[in-house]
Amino acid sequence: MAIINYAQKVINFKVVYYGPGVAGKTANLQHIHKSLPDGSKGSMISLAAGDDRTLFFDFLPLSALTVRGFTAKFQLYTVPGQVYYNMTRKLVLRGADGMVFVADSQWDRLRDNVESFRNLEENLREYNTSLDEMPYVIQYNKRDLENIAPLDYMEFLLNRRARRVPSFEAVAVNGDGVFDTLNTVSRMVLVGEFGQEKGEHRETA
């Protein structure tokens, strides 16, 4: 749910990074935070438990784009990935304009990815929305590890809805794929909000 403020000439969007526990959602935000110049980012807030796992959410406000005299601001959130934090996870989803699903590429986490994806669909239903209406991308993280599933198989498991979405390989702790993911989802959110002139290439194939 975008917030368009004509008085301040600002458009606010909310993008939520979703996925199973320890898949690298927080690592994405941390890399974005340390890479962007001060003028285009605010403070990063992490509500984490003692073991560095996200307890409630991470939050990183960005502002970098200007669209027709309006500043487009993107507020990035992560959800807690652990299964038992579903109530707080659901709260963070409220009002999301776009999503990044961060999957863990390791073989032994494939089931967790699928369960988390289903959980996302269920939680969106409670807000009377669905991935059919929501711009989203998928990021296959931890591609530097040895025990990982091939890309085709991960696509088969997670990118199998009627609308295939852009997906990215990533090593979030090194920053690989992090900005490709962010730039693509933010463009999709903008196009989803305002549409794009006919005949132009759309990011959401």
Partner: peptide, 17 residues
Amino acid sequence: GDLSTPLTADESRTTFG
């Protein structure tokens, strides 16, 4: 007003650089 028409290709290509 300014936001009533669809984005052009250039406008939707804006990124965080």
